[in-house]
């Protein structure tokens, strides 16, 4: 009886997190804020679902597998969120009018130099995509 109550509370809370993702996707104004809603509440949502499974199942042998499920989600979801967010920022799929401040934009503008090419995206030179944009220190003329 108590077990059933705990399981249903966990499942409902997990489902509410899915609902949060859905509501966020519809209501939030631009790509990056939707990213928050789409990926983040599910970290908690999946944890609640897995906890419900563990309580319902009642054997310890399943627990490592459930932990593994969550760990893999923890490892992968920020990477995908980062990749989509980064691509979205670079291709300017964001609404700047909604930003109260944008400290990355200053760095990108400075790195682009006073010549200010119309396209702010950095040249792709392959290899180290992680260090492409904000390098204001690499001999770039100050604007």
């Amino acid at each position: 009886m108590l077990q059933d109550v705990v399981v249903s509370v966990l499942l409902i809370a997990g489902a509410l997190m899915s609902l949060a993702a859905g509501v966020g996707l519809v209501r939030f104004p631009d790509l990056l804020s939707r990213m928050h809603a789409a990926t983040k509440p599910q970290v908690l949502g999946l944890l609640l679902f897995l906890l419900a499974l563990a309580v319902e199942n009642g054997t310890w042998l399943l627990v490592p597998l459930l932990v593994l499920c969550w760990v893999f989600q923890l490892l992968t979801s920020p990477v995908s969120a980062h990749m989509v967010g980064r691509a979205g920022y670079r291709t300017r799929h964001l609404r700047r009018d909604l930003l109260t401040l944008d400290e990355l934009d200053d760095v990108v503008a400075r790195a682009a130099g006073e010549g200010a090419p119309e396209d702010r995206r950095p040249p792709r030179q392959g290899g180290h995509p992680g260090r492409a944009v904000p390098r204001g220190d690499s001999g770039v003329p100050e604007a």
């Binding site: 928050h36 908690l44 969120a81 760095v107 992680g130 260090r131 904000p134 690499s138």
Partner: peptide, 23 residues
């Protein structure tokens, strides 16, 4: 990035600066 409300957009390795998008 795992905590809702913040998302790493860009990393500058040379100064170890994170650029976060925050709700």
């Amino acid at each position: 990035s795992l905590i809702p409300g913040s998302l790493v957009l860009e990393v500058d390795r040379s100064t170890s600066t994170l650029y976060l998008h925050c709700l």
